[in-house]
Amino acid sequence: MDGLFQFGEYAGYVWSAYGISLLGLAVLTAVSWRAYAAAKRRAGSLGDGNCS
């Protein structure tokens, strides 16, 4: 594994870019699923949890 993830003087920039990207996409995914789960709960309280 020697040499892997060795980004030299640019390591801070590379990891920051990947960290921000993964964090941003993870937050977007979590927010979207939470909103979906909440909408399903509200629809479920009407009698059914789906569209049909």
């Binding site: 996409l25 977007l28 995914t29 979207s32 699923w33 909103a35 979906y36 909408a39 399903k40 509200r42 629809a43 009407l46 949890g49 569209c51």
Partner: peptide, 23 residues
């Protein structure tokens, strides 16, 4: 694919929200 996957989830959320609102 992530865009497609998130889009499906968010469209379904919007459809459910509109159903609740209509009800």
């Amino acid at each position: 694919f992530l865009f497609g996957a998130l889009l499906l989830v968010r469209i379904r959320t919007e459809i459910l929200s509109q159903r609740v609102l209509a009800d």
